[in-house]
Design a protein around this nucleic acid. Sequence first.
RNA 1: GGAGAGAUUCCCGAGCUGGCCAAAGGGGGCAGACUGUAAAUCUGCUGGCGUUGCCUUCGGUGGUUCGAAUCCACCUCUCUCCA
Length: 409
Amino acid sequence: MKNVYDILKERGFIEQATHEEQIRELLGREKVVFYIGFDPTADSLHVGHLLQMIAMAHMQKAGHVPIVLIGGGTAMVGDPSGKTEMRMMLSREQIQNNARKFKKQFERLIDFSNGRAIMADNADWLLDLNYISFLRDIGRHFSVNRMLTAECYRQRLETGLTFLEFNYMLMQSYDFLQLYRKYGCKLQMGGNDQWSNIIGGVELIRKVEGAEAYGLTFTLLTTSEGKKMGKTEAGAIWLDPEKTSPYDFYQYWRNVDDKDVVKCLSLLTFLPMEEVRRLGSLEGAQINRAKEILAFELTKMIHGEDEAKKAKAAAQALFSSGSDITSAPTTIINERDIRGGIGILDILLLTGLAPSKSEGRRLIQQGGIYVKEKRVDSIDFRIYEQDFDDSKNLIIRKGKKIYHVVKLQ
RNA sequence: GGAGAGAUUCCCGAGCUGGCCAAAGGGGGCAGACUGUAAAUCUGCUGGCGUUGCCUUCGGUGGUUCGAAUCCACCUCUCUCCA
């Protein structure tokens, strides 16, 4: 069987490693306990976390034991890496609630049964820490001079960095040490922005325990334009179907830039690399095929096969014929409310296709709204009960690809 | 603690010798054309509403004035330099 390290490398995950050769050897030799930290600052994971989750799944498949470390304690401080602003702090209850939701989402990819994976929360050891002993035992191993040369702090030095955030590195290093002691965790992985925090921990374990620990960082999943993947104007693409519908999730991947398709396929799906390369070699309009597979595979992975099929069918139906398959976003309105007709602007507002009537007017004046695939040419356009089809649905389209179903009830 | 500088619409950033400012320019976004539900390009739009007009915006609160993003006072926050 292939060494996971090589798999991760081939698929393009690995950005930096503390000891490339040793890690590779270690992973080939024994069952390794490793961890990745996640900040429970929102009530759902999002596409930005996907890469780390998949890497964990690859590792687990190879027989290693992942620890999902929830930063319940560190979330109360805020990580300065890559942030220009200080993060807001959350209450204990919020954090615990978020952590619960995280676990559910992890379970789609990672098997937590029989100790095959571990869920930990650094609040367990961080919250009761004694300041003096922490300084004495941990703090003395860190050189401020060294820390200041770290990229993440250097940037913040220009805009201002509080002592609170400055301590983030110590805490994360301490996490690694704790996990080493508790679970024999020898490897920390994370996004490349975590590099300095990770080596902090590796060094700490060496100094305190005299033991060898390792660190590995992954590429940040960015678009060809260098922007973080998974962000849209509407906000992040969430893994929680309540926050981002499977249809929207599907569409997000269906619409990725040509240049990003191969990268996404190899990093985010489990398709064999030969298949990825084959799909990547498709040219011109053919590449849409690759995008469909990407979107389907990912939707299946996160929301299950049924949802993926529905999303795919809905997309195909809407885009090819504009017919009435309806797992596109739907708004239900009461029959009473449209008695005598309802103005198009009100409908746009109700469906959320336009945030204000002014915006709705603009859309219509510019020819961006279609009802039943016919362009609406007047802001006085009204919709009546008889406009709905037999199953009481009506399709409204905004622009080229945003479909919305209005359902009468 | 002392001395300065600043806070403008989603972001950056003009305006700040008071009316012509819903506020230049850029970015982003949205729509249109072209296309492959891609990219690039071009065009238009981009506070709200009852849209030839009206209403609420320029850190907060008061004040001066016929009229304030623009002037004054106080407050809050941010940054820079000194300690």
